[in-house]
Each structure stands twice: as structure tokens, then as C-alpha cells.
Design a protein around this nucleic acid. Structure first.
Lengths: 148, 148
DNA sequence: CTAAACAGTACCAATTCAGTCCTATTTATA
DNA sequence: TATAAATAGGACTGAATTGGTACTGTTTAG
């Protein structure tokens, strides 16, 4: 279904929550409680987001997590990549792959372009946008050879 | 990684091959041989594509498959949907989901918009486009509130 | 010194996915 | 009319991914 993983969905919820109070720091337990997501899962996600340098953390009593950058400076694409790895629709978009096909690889090349379009779409939306009541719109436009 | 399934990748290869000779009819064995994809897998995919009304079939000796519509009239989105189901990035985009979250659902609403953007991107590219050496480009543009 | 909180890693269960196989049914042709 | 080439429609299996859990450290305020 070309869907993002459930964990990625959770991760965006976490990040958007943090984006609403960029100054504050939240413990994993606080976030788990507020968002109704199991604590171990929240903890795991926060760790991954930290390793991706999207969060900063403070250890010890009274510690917690907060955004590493301003909400408008973190894109949905970054969150997705942090959890799922690089956004690439096809296997062959990064692996060698035994492309022993005549015309197959023109198809593959085109997939890469489509991939990039999707990636750009995700990069265009920031956490600040996601925190707003409703995005104005995310407009996608495809340009290809038009027969005039 | 937000990737399409391998089977979907195969399916596009099949469809693009058919799109290069829209008049001809191909047997599953022919396609499997030409594209180096295991025959049972090819057969399975063709069945799914048939059920999605993207192909027409003729049974019996000399039978085979061909496109149900002109190559420019079939989008990549249709092929993806036929194999993976409807394109929707989030679970909650079609299921009820226990969204007992304060601001969580604004996030979800925004995901829906992003989903649609991705879907539009896939709808904008036809099999005819994929059969061409290289797409001109698939341009994605996000419009949101700009602070002037 | 103790409890709160993050850090890291290893592990398990369940779902999904890719792939195969088997048994009809249809149809051109020898 | 018998046969072989094809599609039609399933059920089934093995593997890989995913979601979720557990355990053991390390840091630090009070």
C-alpha cells in the first residue's frame, strides 16, 4: 500500500509534540503517557531520532529530550529517514541489482525520478507545518513531454 | 524506507513491456523469459493486474495478455494499487484508529494531505512515460503558508 | 546514596511477503 | 476428437521484516 511504518507514524507524533513546545524538554514517560504509545516503543524511537541528530538529550533526573533544531528546520523526510532509512521507492535505486533486462533499466531510471519526487514532497513539509491545524496544501505537479 | 514492494516493481516492468507493443499479446512464459522473472511469479502478478482491469486476457492456445487501455491511459498509481492496494501512507488514513490524542489528529490530517500528494505524483506518470528513455522530470512543489 | 532518566543491545512473536504448487477451464490445431 | 498450450483460481510454505519487550549499563539531581 506504499505506506509508512507504524513506528514512523508514532515518530512523527512524537516530533510534532516536541515541536509544539520547542523550549521544553520531555521525558520518554511523559510523551508515552500523553500520546498513549507504549513506553518501551517511545524510548526506542527517541533513541533512533537522537542518533539521527534530530533530538538532543539530557541524562539524569529531570532530563529528557527536545528538538535539536527549530520546528521549521526539521522536515518530515528527515523523520521518515531516521526511522525507515533513506527514502527510495525501488530496491535497485541504491543496490546493484542484476538488471539483465533490455529495456528494464529505463523503467528503473524513471522510478528513481518518481522516488525523488516523493522525497521532495516529504522534504517540503516541516514539523512546524505538521503542528499547524491544517496544511495549506501539498501540491504535486508532474512535467513530462507534452504533445502540443 | 518507504519503498514499493519487489512484486510491484516486477509488475511495472511487466506493464511497461506490454506498453511497448500495445497491439501484441504476450503469454506469461514469454514475459517471464524476456524479463528474467520466475514464471510462477509472473503468472501471479498478471492475474492480479487482470483482476484490476488493467489487462485483458485470451485463454487457450495462442492466448495471452495485453493492456486493457492505451499506454498513456494507465498510470503508475494504478499499477501500484493493483498490487499493493490503495496508496495511503498512514494506517489511520482509512481505518478508524483509536486517535485518543489531543493534537495528534491534526498530524494525521496532514499526513493525509502528504499521502495525496504522493498519490498524485504516481498518477501523473503513465506507462507510456515509463517506456520512454527518460522522464523529463517529475516536479513536486509544496505550497504552504509563507511568512512574507 | 538513591531514584529518575537516558543509552545500548539483544531478543521474541507475529505479521507480511515472495515464491511455489496444484487443479481446473478454455481453445487452436493436428 | 484428442492433445497441448494457455489462462484462472486457489492453497500453501519459508523467509524476512516489523513491532514490541527486556535487560543491563551510565548519568545526575537532590
Amino acid at each position: 500500500m506504499l505506506r509508512i511504518a507504524k513506528l514512523t507514524d508514532y515518530a512523527t507524533l512524537l516530533m510534532v509534540r516536541l515541536a509544539r513546545d520547542p523550549a521544553r524538554s520531555f521525558s520518554a514517560a511523559q510523551l508515552a503517557d500523553e500520546l498513549r504509545i507504549p513506553l518501551p516503543t517511545v524510548a526506542k524511537l527517541l533513541k533512533r531520532l537522537l542518533q539521527a541528530h534530530l533530538l538532543t538529550s539530557v541524562r539524569g533526573v529531570g532530563g529528557g529530550y527536545s528538538l535539536a533544531h527549530a520546528p521549521h528546520a526539521i522536515s518530515v523526510a528527515e523523520v521518515v529517514s531516521a526511522i525507515e532509512g533513506p527514502v527510495a521507492l525501488t530496491e535497485c535505486a541504491r543496490g546493484a541489482g542484476n538488471c539483465s533486462l533490455e529495456g528494464g533499466c529505463t523503467t528503473r531510471a524513471n522510478w528513481k525520478l518518481i522516488s525523488r519526487a516523493v522525497r521532495v514532497a516529504l522534504e517540503a513539509v516541516s514539523l512546524a507545518d505538521m503542528a499547524m491545524p491544517q496544511l495549506r496544501s501539498v501540491h504535486v505537479q508532474a512535467l513530462q513531454e507534452k504533445k502540443p
